[in-house]
């Protein structure tokens, strides 16, 4: 019981220390561009291009559902229909575009990164890289984290366009709000800082998802069970940290 309490208290502190150490080493390896140049391009494709279809699908449905639900909640002769555009667009730009993309990447990319690195760890492939004289953190972790930071905003922009477009089309063809009225509503309350805030969130989310997943995978212990555990923990920890980061950013920047 005492040991359990001790573990509960000290394990997260220990993990935070190791995570910080790993990040410190990764930052130190950033200037060694030749080590990860080729890998960076591959990771950008895995993180960004390969995730694009599922992100766009989820964003389109998020936008559409937000339109339908907003019109359902605000049906009143006293409220103009343009309010739907005023709510759907900021919802996508400020919150849904980044968070939906974040959750998808945590599941899709985070789990993949942890599984990949975890398998490399337990089959001694990471030891083999180190034994050759290569900086394994520079080779494996830096390109994945950079790819996350670079590609997340790209996915976010695509998610916002598709989400808003989806909402607008469903509003128009579903008879909830004509397209022109939707656009008028969107313009009326548009704040130029909103997309900037969304992009800042994306940089933070991209960093959290990839770095946490790399950490979980890189320090995997045990065989197949260890890889499975690391993969689950990477996805769960990324999602939880993403929620905290979302709240902290909203509270500090808005």
């Amino acid at each position: 019981m005492l040991q359990y309490a001790k573990n509960l208290l000290f394990d997260p502190i220990q993990a935070l220390g190791r995570y910080s150490q790993l990040l410190f080493k990764a930052f130190g390896a950033v200037p060694e561009f030749n080590t990860y140049r080729k890998n960076l391009w591959e990771q950008m494709i895995h993180v960004g291009i390969d995730s694009m279809p599922i992100v766009m699908l989820a964003a389109a449905f998020s936008g559409a559902v937000t339109t339908v639900q907003t019109s359902y909640q605000l049906v009143s002769p006293l409220i103009p229909k343009s309010i739907i555009g005023s709510i759907v667009v900021p919802s996508m730009v400020l919150e849904l575009g980044a968070v939906v993309t974040g959750f998808i990447l945590a599941g899709r990319v985070g789990a993949r990164i942890a599984a990949e690195l975890g398998t490399m760890r337990v089959t001694e492939q990471i030891d083999a890289l180190e034994a050759m004289g290569l900086n394994s953190i520079g080779y494996l972790i830096v390109p994945r984290v950079l790819a996350g930071i670079v590609m997340f905003p790209v996915l976010y922009v695509a998610a916002c366009f598709v989400g808003i477009g989806g909402g607008m089309l469903v509003g128009h063809f579903g008879g909830f709000v004509p397209m022109g009225v939707f656009v008028d509503g969107a313009r009326e309350f548009f704040q130029p800082f909103d997309p900037i805030f969304g992009l800042i969130k994306c940089l933070v989310f991209g960093f959290i998802i990839t770095s946490v997943s790399c950490f979980k995978g890189y320090y995997t212990r045990g065989g197949a069970e260890g890889v499975g555990k690391a993969t689950t923990e990477a996805a769960v920890a990324s999602c939880v940290l993403l929620l905290f980061a979302d709240l902290i950013l909203a509270a500090t920047l808005l």
Binding site: T123, Q125, A128, A131, M132
Partner: peptide
């Protein structure tokens, strides 16, 4: 220093 070494790991450790 490690570049002077070649290592054969137990399972081969080939990059899959």
């Amino acid at each position: 220093i490690r570049q002077n070494f070649g290592v054969l790991f137990q399972g081969g450790a080939l990059f899959d």
